[in-house]
C-alpha cells in the first residue's frame, strides 16, 4: 500500500507540472480527485487493510489527497492569472498607434544650444531687422565708405541706403542706442551675402553675435567667457588659441581657434592640415563704435563676438554641402533630433 501511495504521489507531481490548459486541469481532476479517481480507488482499497495499517495508511492517503488538491488549486490559479494578463490574446508585437513627431531644423538646434549656454552666463537675447540701413550695418560699425573691409562682406542692396544685413552685428548698435550699460546680450539671426551659391557658400546663413559693455571689461574677460563657452559646447578638454585678426568694429580683434576635434588635431582636410578649427571672431568694441552711440570709451569698455551657425553645425554633423540646409528635403531634416 505504501508503495502504491508513493508511486501515485510521484505520478501526481509529474502531471501537475504540466498543467497549462483547462482541459488538462479537468483531466487531472478526473484522474486523481474524482469519485472514481486513483485516490478514491486507494481509499476503497484501504478497507481491505488490517487494523494496524489502517490508521497510518489512512493518514498518508489524506495527505496525498490534500497535496493533489493544492497542486490543482495552484494550477487553476496560475491559469487564471495568465488569462487575466491576457498573455494569450494580446499581440503586443503589433505596431503602436503612431503620433506625428516634429524635427527641429539643425540650424535652430544649433542656435538654441549655443544661446542656452550664453543665457546661463547671464546674456539676454535680442532680435533685429534683416533689412538694415547702411548706417547700422556699416557706418556705425566703423566700416568707412570705400574701404576694403567692405569687400569682406558682399552686400545685397535694396536702395542706396538700405541693404540686407551682412551680419548680426548691427543689433549691437541698436542695443547700445536703447539701453545704458551694462549691456550683456547675444543676437542670433539670419544674414545675407551676395555670393554665388555653392557647397561652401550660400546667399543666406545665420550668426550669433554677442556684446558685453560695462565698466572695466577687458580682453581677459573676453577670453574667459569665450573659453567657457567653447568648453561647454565642444567639451572641456579642448585646446584653443586666440590670434590677431581684423574687424572694423573691434580693436584689438581676434579669431578663436580650437583644436580640430575631427582629427584630434593631427591635421585633416577639414582643418586644412593645420590641426585648428576657427570657431568665432571677437574683439574689444572699437571706440569709434562707442562714439556713434554716445557711450564714453573712457568710462566703459566692452567685448563683442560673432559665431557662424552653419559652419558650426556642418562641422559637428559632417554635413558637406550648405545647400542641404535650405533645400528642406525632409529626408535630411529627419536625420537630426
Amino acid at each position: 500500500m505504501k508503495d502504491r501511495i508513493e508511486g501515485l504521489l510521484a505520478k501526481i507531481r509529474e502531471s501537475a507540472a504540466n498543467l497549462s490548459t483547462e482541459e488538462g486541469l479537468e483531466q487531472f481532476r478526473i484522474a486523481f480527485l474524482s469519485r472514481k479517481g486513483s485516490i478514491a480507488q486507494l481509499f476503497e482499497d484501504l478497507k481491505t487493510l488490517s487494523a494496524d495499517e489502517k490508521p497510518s495508511m489512512g493518514k498518508a492517503l489524506n495527505v496525498l489527497r490534500q497535496t493533489a488538491q493544492s497542486l490543482l488549486d495552484e494550477a487553476v490559479e496560475n491559469l487564471q492569472r495568465e488569462k487575466k494578463s491576457g498573455k494569450d490574446v494580446l499581440d503586443i508585437t503589433l505596431p503602436g498607434r503612431a503620433q506625428h513627431r516634429g524635427h527641429m531644423h539643425i540650424v535652430s538646434q544649433t542656435i538654441e544650444e549655443i544661446s542656452d549656454i550664453f543665457r546661463r552666463m547671464g546674456f539676454s537675447v535680442a532680435d533685429g531687422p534683416e533689412i538694415e540701413t547702411d548706417h547700422y550695418n556699416f557706418e556705425a560699425l566703423n566700416f568707412p565708405a570705400d574701404h576694403p573691409a567692405r569687400d569682406m562682406q558682399d552686400t545685397f542692396f535694396i536702395t542706396d541706403s538700405h541693404l540686407l544685413r551682412t551680419h548680426t552685428t548691427p543689433v549691437q548698435v541698436r542695443l547700445m542706442e536703447k539701453y545704458q550699460p551694462p549691456i550683456r546680450a547675444i543676437f542670433p539671426g539670419k544674414v545675407y551675402r551676395n555670393e554665388v551659391i555653392s557647397a561652401r557658400s550660400h546667399v543666406q546663413f545665420h550668426q550669433i553675435d554677442g556684446l558685453f559693455v560695462d565698466k572695466g571689461v577687458t580682453f581677459a574677460d573676453l577670453k574667459g567667457t569665450l573659453v567657457t563657452f567653447a568648453k561647454m559646447y565642444y567639451g572641456s578638454s579642448l585646446k584653443y588659441r586666440f590670434r590677431p585678426s581684423f574687424f572694423p568694429f573691434t580693436e584689438p580683434s581676434a579669431e578663436m581657434d580650437i583644436s580640430c576635434y575631427l582629427c584630434n588635431a593631427k591635421g585633416c582636410r577639414v582643418c586644412k592640415h593645420t590641426g585648428w578649427l576657427e570657431i568665432l571672431g571677437c574683439g574689444m568694441v572699437d571706440p569709434n563704435v562707442f562714439s556713434f552711440v554716445n557711450v564714453d570709451p573712457e568710462e566703459f569698455s566692452g567685448y563683442a563676438f560673432g559665431i557662424g551657425i552653419e559652419r558650426t553645425a556642418m562641422l559637428r554633423h559632417a554635413i558637406d554641402d550648405i545647400r542641404l540646409l535650405f533645400e528642406n528635403d525632409l529626408r535630411v531634416n529627419h536625420q537630426f533630433n
Binding site: 516634429g102 524635427h103 531644423h105 535652430s108 535650405f326 531634416n333 529627419h334
Partner: peptide, 9 residues
C-alpha cells in the same frame, strides 16, 4: 508633429 524647415528669403 511638424518638421521645422528653413528656406531662402
Amino acid at each position: 508633429g511638424f518638421d521645422e524647415i528653413l528656406s531662402s528669403s
